[in-house]
């Protein structure tokens, strides 16, 4: 079964990353690199998203399409990337997500 792990950043996480020195930040990136290497056999696809200030949202529910600046929910938590994994069940997906070393929230959604 395929699941998408949505990686969610919080303001605090972004601040912490910002305030790190070069060495600490590199260590954090290396940890993410190791995670992807470790789970490479299960990861079918992944991407890191540019920061939320680059986002544009289009609402198609009204008479006219409405274009707005920013992500679709304005909040302290924003999706910053995703990885699609192929595993047997939710427990395996949870086990993979559990070892994620970066941003503090991960949403797990099964894919049809």
């Amino acid at each position: 079964m395929k699941y998408v792990l949505l990686f969610v950043e919080t303001e605090r996480f972004a601040r912490d990353l910002e305030s790190m020195d070069e060495e600490a930040r590199q260590a954090a990136y290396d940890a993410v690199g190791r995670w992807f290497a470790e789970h490479a056999a299960k990861i079918t696809h992944s991407a890191h998203l540019r920061p939320s200030h680059t986002a544009t949202t289009l609402r198609l529910e009204g008479d006219e399409p409405l274009v707005t600046d920013g992500p679709f929910v304005e909040g302290k938590e924003v999706v910053s990337g995703y990885a699609e994994i192929e595993v047997a069940d939710l427990d395996e997906a949870l086990a993979v997500a559990r070892s994620w070393p970066a941003c503090p929230v991960v949403e797990i959604r099964p894919v049809d």
């Binding site: 069940d89 939710l90 427990d91």
Partner: peptide, 14 residues
């Protein structure tokens, strides 16, 4: 059913 929560005894680690 939809998120495929498994029907089994968890592994020792879990």
């Amino acid at each position: 059913t939809d998120a495929r929560i498994p029907y089994r005894v968890p592994s020792d680690a879990e």
